[in-house]
Amino acid sequence: MDDLYREVIIEHYKNPGYRGKLDPHDISFADNNPLCGDHIQIDLRVGTDGVVTDARFDGHGCAISQASADLLIESIIGKPLEEIKKLNKESILELLGIELGPVRLKCALLSLKVLKAGVYGLGEASDELVE
């Protein structure tokens, strides 16, 4: 439990490497976690070969949601969209390196939900995307 606020998480929360917006971009999507009002927007640039060439996230929220967004963005640059579609809950928990209860899991998974909804070109980010 005390692990929840591991240094990596605090570090990515306070000094994110990939916070910002991309203009122009090929994909952009945003959503909220109504529970805590977390908000995440993700912008992607994608090459003709379907590989992510650059990515940024923006928004606000708790340390878990913002750190997991930063870690996620870091991990997808240079990856093909097809691979991103395969990311799930476990991928995020691996990035964070912590166990999470059901409430905070929602915070952690918001960025992945937003990312996948954008990649699939969906109108809405649903929970099924990250199961």
Binding site: M1, Y5, C36, G37, H60, G61, C62, C107
Partner: peptide
Amino acid sequence: HPHDVAQILDQDGIAIRAG
């Protein structure tokens, strides 16, 4: 973020609400 405040307080058994 308030959620982080509440979560860390919970480690000491302190129940407050965030949101």
